[in-house]
Amino acid sequence: MSSDPPGFELPIRLLLAFRALIDELHTRLAERGHPEMRPMHGFVFQAVGPEGCSTAELGRRLGVTKQAAAKTVESLERLGYLTRVPDPADARARIVRLTPRGVSALSDSAEIFDALRAEWSEALGPARLATVEDALRTMTAAEPFRTDLPAWFS
């Protein structure tokens, strides 16, 4: 009889690790003045990017319908994280952009993720964490961030 764990445990453990990091991120974001932030919002902010984009393009980047993207933008506008501004190339179109509050949330997230990684490094040891990260890089796509992941879950 093998002492190896069952195959289904690997994706469950990876998901649990992801969930632990994201839950702690959001606890700390709330402490920094962003209690309404949700995991999906980080994907939206990354998909909007520094240059902004149309709602239709945001939907494509997220892998959701234009209507779903518009609903998300409206929600994040109400919370003060996004704004829609006239498109300089097309007076009829609007561009979705991060507000200073949105940029602040992204900056806070980056700082918190660095702190969380340092905590994992302390708990596991730097060499062990580096081994885990190297192994995950070997087994995953070269592009480390996909904004369409939330659509994949639904």
Rank of each mutant, 00 (worst) to 15 (best):
R13E: 12
R13F: 03
L14M: 02
A17T: 10
R19D: 06
R19W: 01
L21G: 01
L21E: 13
L21N: 12
I22Y: 04
D23W: 01
L25T: 09
L25F: 03
T27Q: 05
L29D: 02
L29W: 05
A30D: 14
E31H: 11
E31G: 06
E31N: 02
H34A: 08
H34T: 04
P35L: 04
P35V: 08
E36W: 06
E36Y: 07
M37S: 02
M37C: 03
P39L: 04
P39H: 12
H41S: 13
H41G: 00
F43K: 02
V44S: 00
V44L: 05
F45V: 00
Q46F: 13
Q46T: 14
A47H: 09
A47G: 09
P50M: 10
P50E: 15
E51R: 15
E51K: 10
E51P: 03
G52D: 02
G52L: 02
C53P: 05
S54D: 05
S54G: 14
A56I: 01
E57H: 07
G59E: 08
R60D: 09
R61E: 01
L62Y: 01
G63C: 00
G63N: 08
V64G: 00
V64H: 05
T65A: 00
K66M: 13
Q67T: 10
A70K: 12
A70I: 02
A70Y: 13
K71C: 05
K71N: 15
T72H: 14
T72S: 08
V73S: 04
V73W: 12
L76Y: 02
L76R: 11
E77G: 12
E77T: 13
R78M: 09
R78L: 09
G80W: 06
T83H: 09
A89F: 03
D90R: 09
A91E: 13
A93R: 15
R94G: 06
I95Y: 05
V96M: 14
V96Y: 12
R97G: 15
R97L: 09
R97C: 14
L98H: 15
L98C: 10
P100Q: 11
R101S: 15
R101H: 15
G102K: 11
V103K: 01
A105G: 02
A105S: 12
L106Y: 01
S107G: 13
D108F: 02
D108I: 00
S109K: 05
